[in-house]
Amino acid sequence: MIFSIIVQAPPVQAQGAETALRFARAVLAAGHRIHRVFFYRDGVHNGTALTCTPQDENSIPAQWQALAAEHDLDLVVCIAAAVRRGLIDESEAGRYGHRHWNLADGFELSGLGQLVEACLTSDRVVTFGGRS
């Protein structure tokens, strides 16, 4: 079965990002395919390259990266939500005249159309929310 996962929860402040990660691992372990993980609203913060995580805690972005590398996952961060929150890649840095960028490797900025396409392509779409 083909799954897509929508993450609206940010790491650290909400549990939803970690729940989504565990769910993604369980989906893959059961032999299903993940078409896309789409990060929306404050969920875009899952894609930052600049987290500094205490040694006895696990970095959520790093865990997404590792899972994506292992299973060739499509990690898409909503571009409109991301640039507003200061999460940009090299290309957007060029467009907006910033000297720095911070989107982690393995994540990609793209539009909400990718969310709609995921809904059409997947057998199941599962959303993990924060609040507000």
């Binding site: 609203r41 409109a80 909400l112 159309g113």
Partner: peptide
């Protein structure tokens, strides 16, 4: 389920709906 302005939820929900329409869904 959220009130407007106090959070971005209202606008974010509208953006999803508008995108569906742009993609003719």
């Amino acid at each position: 389920r959220s009130a407007p302005y106090g959070s971005s939820a209202a606008r974010d929900a509208l953006d999803v709906a508008l995108t569906c329409s742009v993609f003719e869904q």
